[in-house]
Amino acid sequence: MRIHVDRDTCEGLGMCESMAHEFFEVDDDDVMHVLDEQPGEEHRPQVAAAVSSCPVLALTLEG
Rank of each mutant, 00 (worst) to 15 (best):
R7E: 09
H43Y: 03
I3D: 00
H21I: 08
A48M: 05
M1L: 14
E25S: 12
E62Y: 06
E37F: 07
F23T: 01
A58M: 11
C16E: 10
H33I: 01
D36E: 06
H43D: 03
D27M: 03
R44I: 02
Q46M: 08
D29T: 07
V31F: 03
C54A: 14
A50Y: 00
V56F: 10
H43G: 00
D8L: 05
P45L: 01
H4Y: 09
H4K: 15
D6E: 02
H43S: 05
R7N: 03
G12E: 10
D8T: 11
V56C: 06
L35Y: 04
E11F: 05
C16V: 08
D27P: 13
C54W: 08
A58P: 14
A50P: 13
V51F: 01
C16P: 11
Q46S: 10
E37R: 14
T9L: 11
L59Q: 03
S52Q: 15
P39K: 02
V51K: 02
E11C: 05
R7D: 07
V51P: 00
E11G: 10
T60Y: 03
S18A: 13
V47E: 00
R2E: 15
V31E: 15
H43E: 06
G63T: 12
V26L: 10
C16R: 05
F23C: 07
M19D: 14
C54T: 14
D6W: 00
I3A: 02
C54F: 08
A48P: 05
V31W: 07
A49V: 03
E37L: 12
G14N: 11
A49F: 04
G14V: 14
E17P: 06
